[in-house]
Nucleic acid binder design. Structure first.
Lengths: 214, 214
DNA sequence: ACTTGCTATATTGTCGACAACTTGGTGTTA
DNA sequence: TAACACCAAGTTGTCGACAATATAGCAAGT
């Protein structure tokens, strides 16, 4: 869904953003009638939006009872990162095999632009930049399931945790070097190493976050 | 969803089975009106069922056009097994950490019952048994996302490929030994090894299937 | 006071009808 | 003949109303 077409598309995205950004608080109940007046659409549209949120694991539904926004917990965040480690590790492995030379060159250029920012004295490492880096590698895997699971499912949840637990994006200091090594491995078409480095990268990330939480 | 409650639940499962078993052929279009008469429910119910099928990646939907059953391709099967390798590898790793001693003992007992069958002269290795083995390890990971992705999403697709490309279940000869080694690694709480063995197990599986296809 | 059963209310699930959109076909024009 | 605009039929998207189900509160009995 590149462009939202139907009312259900737009409502889904609006609702998802409201939840991820915390405007609708975690754990709260989603009333269909209430939302349908708020968004000025019929309940059918709201129901479809909620169904899609459920398949993203952003809400949980019980038959004849209703839908609740998922509750955030340290355990939940850990589980999320375990899945990321697994999936993005595989993505890096496949990217090393499947990315075109041009795509790899572009990735290198992106990294260079990050370096220019980091070099500029302050350790300014945009979350957007980090996300973009991971995006490209995941896309580079050329595996539909991998891409869909991460983009449609996991990433919004990760963002929800980031926003609501108030993390200031990923670690600044060492992440750049880790990215650099990953790109190098992909450039060398060393799938094995690329996977290992990506897994470590995400593991470090997880540890850093766990540390902040405690 | 342990028990189907609503009409949408039942229709979803019925439709999914029809597709997985090939009674509705891969690549064909799903007409909402047609299905609603066939299943004797309203279009709203059909739409919800189709939406759920879409989140399982069993059908693809385009706005204002409709839904089609996914097309099967060798490439698609490979991509599926790449994801399985990644996710189930992680599941085995986590299972080695998180399964209780009792659960591991049960798993060992299951394996023993398989051995008894194999020993009985013929190399009879039920698909159901294999699936059960993998199920337990995935459940043993205690990771909600892993469990949901595999059970609700990947496994039905794998089954769809198995049924429609006419594979007689998993390989018979070596799979038992591989299972045995995996259980041993879990028993030793060797997470690293458990993951590696599971990944290899699935990789072999993939190679075997690729071989049959060519 | 505590439990049990009922009722009232509110919410979700399902339905049929209408609106909006896609698509294939037809006729017109260069 | 090819290209284009338009129309018609059928499909999907959206809506409001009704049916089925859960939940909270109250009443009655022990």
């Amino acid at each position: 869904m590149n462009q939202p077409i139907t009312a259900a598309d737009k409502t889904f995205i609006a609702l998802r953003d409201d939840i991820v950004e915390g405007r609708i608080e975690a754990g709260s109940k989603l009333s269909e009638t209430e939302l349908s007046t708020k968004f000025a659409v019929s309940r059918a549209v709201i129901r479809e939006a909620i169904n899609r949120l459920e398949s993203c694991h952003i809400v949980e539904r019980k038959a004849n009872v209703g839908a609740r926004v998922v509750a955030l917990s340290p355990q939940g965040l850990i589980e999320l990162y375990q899945v990321r480690e697994s999936l993005e590790g595989m993505a890096a492995r496949l990217a090393a095999k499947n990315m075109t030379d041009e795509e790899i060159a572009d990735l290198g250029a992106l990294l260079q632009s990050h370096f220019d920012e980091v070099k500029g004295g302050e350790s300014y490492y945009q979350e957007a930049g980090d996300v973009d880096f991971h995006y490209r590698i995941i896309l580079g895997s050329k595996n539909k399931h991998l891409i869909s699971m991460l983009f449609d499912g996991i990433y919004h949840l990760v963002r929800m945790y980031r926003v609501q637990l108030g993390m200031a994006g990923p670690r600044v200091t060492t992440a750049y070097d880790e990215h650099k090594h990953i790109v190098q491995a992909i450039l060398n078409r060393d799938a094995e190493l690329a996977e290992m480095l990506m897994r470590r990268h995400i593991l470090y990330s997880k540890n850093s976050i766990e540390h902040k939480l405690s």
